[in-house]
Design a protein around this nucleic acid. Structure first.
Lengths: 349, 349
DNA sequence: TAATTTTTGCGAATCGTTTCGCTTATTCCT
DNA sequence: AGGAATAAGCGAAACGATTCGCAAAAATTA
């Protein structure tokens, strides 16, 4: 029943048009003169057979597919989605196609994806790395395939990267809160000690306190592994549980918007008003932050720009251009909504 | 500076080990007996050269890469992410690798992606279609490549699909609200008339009203194109604007959770309490619905199951198994949270 | 017209793999 | 020991494209 039509190859087209294979190739690639008569015959044959060149086979020969790969650990994070959108736009503008590999945090799967993409299939790869082991990335890099890393830097290498200064960004959050008069600023994060980004932000929190002459109060720092991205419930429960035991600061900075929103919900249920009693600032400026109650003040990363920059960098490498700057740091900005306000004067107990 | 190491091919391995190419191939694929001595030499050479077979070149010969492609229009929608997670798990379990192509609703880009994937690169393709023009899908299908469509059905074809009964699901929402005593049930949707899913749900809304003996009040139906997925702000503004002009029902059903949440926020600002004054039900059971205020009652689609089912179906086709059921409809379920309650008795004006 | 140049198109090699048939080398049997 | 049967490994073709050198045909020149 299911008629399996064999896809036609360049050979079939040649036969159909009554010319040689190389003539067909010349017509397709327009890189050699072909007389009008033959060209017409070839084009007609192509149309008749619905022929489409096999890009992969071509790549086998030319070593280029005009496709680039992006490896990411988790498709569900809106942050990635935005960055990838920036990448895709730029790739398309420069006439490349973007292919995604998603490992779902499985390191073997990541290896398989890379292996597939690497083999003459893509001209270059961009990594969002989900692990702190960067062996795969190094491997690809050592093979001489153009590689760019986003949202993370790989120590001790020449591997180009595009990211923000996470520590500085968080420091600015603390500055911002300190300017509003806050003296006790708590911090909320999940604890993946070996994830650079998470660590950097925490460092920024610490240096921000120091810079503003504030003391770190460990009771006001919630770092818990059971808090996870994209799982409101867990965040909320843990936060609520923890908050009971700690002494309450007048403001919180958080690793990510999702955590902040969970935090706000927990605080509200405990009777605090935001921002009148407690200020909260998030990180990433996700879409949800526009719609939380109150709308969340948050650190905006230039997501699309990040994607664009990374893709441009990669394609420049692919095309053999001279790279000026291999480690690009992009600026951040605090988007003020309504969740952070002037510090409440705390009465001495 | 950048040392471009040529990736070693099977030929290099053969030379290094002092055996023929075919012997190396036999060792790798374990499909022919090779004496112990030679096998060891080959394995050593592979290790020394860090050789990895080129899966694409292999596919050129074997017509199989053990990779499958998924084409989707938008990476940012959490619904897709969940379904894809289900697909990926199943693919991995069956020893296939999943590659994603994201068109961002650009039809030419979609064509390029398909073209890349199709050319002997993947063994089969799953489509989430973002357009109502299904020409691409038909093309792939006509080429004899295994194809499955999720979340949509393609009329007039034999193309297998996995989806829910959107009309029935929405009808059950109306049933649910009617059971709570609601007589005036509004509807909120964006208006892509040529998107089957959107249309089907609206049909379910209409038939649900009829079934429960309720009358359609056009003033209580908000269908507007400027409302878009994943953009709270737009939704919110439009809804608020529109609500001013319409007569208010006691309950709303909505096409999607994002719309419902925008709706709830607008209603609350207008002084309505939810669910005491107005009930709201969403669709898709997104993560946000756990955390909105109040938590949103919503229709749950079995997302991971949908992914698993579609992938199993596709791989069965790829492996030439007999397919029993080509159009699979999965069940839905209403998850009760707090946004829908008993109807308020409306006083006659 | 003959020699020379230019124009077109072809054939074959190549990319990295698998696979099949063929040639040796080895083992077995009588 | 000699022939048959079996085992191991090799060489070459094939997959679908590109590309380069070369041959044949056409155009130009003397």
């Amino acid at each position: 029943m299911k008629k399996k039509i064999k896809r036609s190859s360049i050979k079939d087209v040649a036969k159909e048009a009554g010319v040689s294979i190389s003539t067909v190739s010349s017509v397709i690639n327009k890189n050699k003169f072909v007389s009008e008569g033959r060209e017409k015959k070839v084009l007609a044959a192509i149309k008749r057979l619905k022929y489409k060149p096999n890009i992969i086979a071509r790549g086998l020969r030319t070593k280029s597919t005009r496709a680039v790969g992006v490896i990411l650990p988790d498709i569900a994070q809106p942050f990635f989605a935005q960055v990838i959108r920036g990448m895709e736009e730029t790739a398309r503008k420069r006439n490349y196609t973007l292919i995604l590999g998603c490992s779902f945090y499985d390191i073997e799967e990541e290896e398989r994806q890379i292996n597939i993409l690497m083999n003459q299939f893509v001209d270059g790869i961009i990594f969002f790395c989900g692990f702190d082991s960067h062996d795969h990335i190094r491997m690809v890099y050592d093979y001489g395939i153009p590689v760019v890393v986003t949202d993370r830097e790989i120590g001790n290498t020449q591997i180009p990267s595009v990211l923000i200064d996470n520590a500085l960004a968080m420091e600015k959050v603390i500055d911002y809160l300190a300017d509003l008069g806050h003296k006790e600023i708590g911090y909320l994060s999940f604890n993946l000690d070996n994830q650079t980004t998470v660590r950097r932000r925490y460092e920024g929190y610490l240096s921000g306190l120091k810079k503003n002459g504030l003391k770190l109060n460990p009771k006001q720092v919630i770092i818990d592994d059971s808090i996870r991205m994209n799982e409101f419930k867990g965040t909320y429960d843990v936060v609520k549980e923890l908050l009971k035991k700690k002494s309450m600061p007048t403001a919180f900075a958080a690793l990510a918007d999702y955590l902040s929103i969970g935090l706000m919900k927990a605080l509200k249920e405990m009777g605090y008003r935001i921002p009148e009693d407690i200020s909260v600032i998030g990180f990433n400026n996700e879409i949800v932050s526009q719609f939380s109650d109150p709308p969340l003040t948050s650190v905006k990363q230039p997501k699309k720009l990040m994607g664009k920059t990374a893709m441009d960098l990669l394609l420049d490498m692919v095309e053999g251009k001279k790279i000026e700057e291999k480690n690009i740091v992009l600026p951040t900005e605090i988007i003020e909504r309504g969740s952070a306000g002037i510090a409440k004067i705390k009465k001495k107990a």
